[in-house]
Design a protein around this nucleic acid. Structure first.
Lengths: 337, 337
DNA sequence: ACATTTGCTTTAAACGTTTAAAGAACTATT
DNA sequence: AATAGTTCTTTAAACGTTTAAAGCAAATGT
């Protein structure tokens, strides 16, 4: 079946392509197209199963109705959640999402951004990866609207949708303190990403402000390439050596790895140890007890990212940093006070 | 920063756009472009930070280097895995993925396919949803190459990448039989999707061929909108009433829901009951014992989907149905024989 | 000296749209 | 009957590329 263009419809009806374009773009009355002709055009378009060529349209109008999305790894629960939210919000405004997963590689990130730009996306939503500052700075020089989501950089001032990581970690730590814990550990990735650093900052501040001396050994850092071995060591050290009575994991993946190790070492939750997780995971459902955790507002983040971006595309550019709160989901993984 | 086009480079260097186009497309020698000029063009392009307009390119060449992907729900582990595999395989061949999640709605599915076509994708990879046959049949009438993945329809002959669901379910059931189980239950969704029906067929065949009478009550169907309540009833019925000694869950999500219920009802695995799962889940890692399951070859499926599609795009159209085997992952959720 | 070849470059049309602007056919007003 | 609106329709350029074809020197062959 040959592709049908405006020209085909025009020939078929016996009018010019301009008229067809007007009608099919809903400018029939504005341009005062004859009623019967308009109807005939619509009918023929339908019959011939006309599909507008979005590329040609975009080329002419300089507007692709497309937004580019780069996530850190689509296999993360965070990424798929945010992607889904972004995609459906985008479609509400008639935008299509072009998509890439950087897999935490700055090279791939950079390349993806370029590919998306070449595809003339109207704007970008990015979850930046470690050391991607240069790519972002280059982006800022172009006029392409973009918003960062979930992660940011101190050296970069841009539109950003973030969790209030500091506050969430602070509050969660306080939660543990209220439960009577004095030796609270915080397990984080070894990373320069500010969202993770902020969590550490929140944790430390909470301890300090509640008169608890923070021991450096309570905050082991896990290398992302060596989660299993590092975690094994960390859990053992925190429980057997440091005698911590609570562990706060900085992400869902750390929580899972940690809980797995805790199971292996036959540590009972919450009798021997309280556990709290930043982020939630489907996996928690099958753990021996419900895990208390802070939940990220994925839907909301995605939605706000899109609306912020669309504002940026349509109106003038203000810079906006939005911080969203997490939701506290109580479980049974923290011992009663 | 104004957008730079071939024309700008041409003006800058003092040549025609054609020359610039040749050079920047690597046809410099073929078209015998002067060495110094070619060099100058390349340098200027670099300096001006030229980004080719992919839309214009595609419009002219009638090739967008873009493939459309529609998954059933990006939040499924299957979807994100397959998406990631597809995206990276596509990029290896210089294709970009345009993406949509139908969320199991046939309307959204249909709409997404249309949007992608309007964006002139060179081909489509689709995970069809229930009752989307009409959309697919319409697709077949157009000349757009597409492959179905994971699901298919008896009434539709198309390029398809599937699991060998029948065999996987058959083998898994046999595995349970070998472990000495006689009363094996199979919990599936209430659905017309052939991949799920095939699993039921494999299960039933295995029982029959091993001389086990199949009781209809052993195969409860869970309604996708009522997983929790239906599962509660099913588990209770299978264990307390039917006295089944093994349960085989047809999908990862059913397994999770089932295991949750099993935990609630304090049934011990594998002492009181053996459990086997089709699909794997991160959640299994935190269950009280490792769950034996059949693993889908996501990477391979994605890769094959892309290569099949690219063949379809580039060469002539043969119809191919590819069945992939699952991998057996032994756990400790089946009692010893 | 002229024709041919070689090496390099430009011209111009096309892809499928949009959209100002001009044009044509009526109708209404003098 | 000439003029001026209305109302409807067409013309044509443009968006940023690609690419066949033509153009033009300079080099080579006879």
């Amino acid at each position: 079946m040959k592709k049908i263009g405006l020209k085909d419809i025009a020939n078929h009806v016996g009018v010019s392509v301009a008229l067809v374009s007007y009608v099919l773009n809903g400018q029939a009355e504005e341009k005062q197209v004859g009623k019967e002709i308009a109807e005939k055009i619509r009918k023929t378009a339908e019959e011939l199963n006309y599909r507008p060529n979005q590329l040609a349209k975009s080329l002419k109008t300089n507007k692709s109705n497309t937004i580019g999305l780069v996530v850190a790894d689509i296999n993360y629960r965070f990424s798929s959640g945010i992607t889904r939210a972004i995609e459906s919000e985008a479609k509400r405004s008639n935008y299509t999402v072009i998509f890439g997963s950087s897999n935490e590689s700055k090279e791939k990130f950079h390349e993806l951004v370029n590919v998306l730009i070449n595809h003339q996306v109207d704007g970008l939503i990015l979850v930046p990866v470690e050391n991607s500052e240069p790519s972002i700075k280059a982006l800022q020089k172009s006029e392409i609207p973009f918003v960062l989501i979930d992660r940011n950089f101190p050296s970069i001032l841009a539109n950003t949708i973030l969790l209030d990581n500091y506050k969430a970690a602070y509050d969660s730590t306080v939660h543990l303190i209220r439960h009577g814990h004095k030796r609270i550990a915080f397990v984080n990735y070894q990373s320069k990403l500010t969202n993770l650093l902020e969590r550490t900052r929140g944790y430390t501040a909470a301890l300090k402000e509640h008169g608890i001396d923070h021991h450096h050994e309570w905050s082991p850092l896990i290398r992302s390439g060596h989660v299993e071995s590092d975690m094994k060591k960390a859990i053992h050290d925190l429980t057997a050596v440091q005698k911590c009575d609570a562990i706060f994991f900085a992400t869902d993946r750390l929580s899972i790895a940690g809980l797995k190790e805790i199971m292996k070492q036959k540590i009972r939750i919450p009798e021997d140890l309280s556990v709290f997780s930043f982020d939630e995971s489907e996996a928690f459902e099958l753990f021996s007890c419900p895990v208390s955790h802070a939940r990220q507002p994925l839907e909301k983040m995605g939605k706000i990212a899109v609306t912020t971006l669309l504002d940026l595309i349509n109106k003038d550019k203000v810079i906006n940093q939005i911080f969203l709160p997490t939701e506290f989901v109580p479980g049974k993984s923290c011992r009663e006070p």
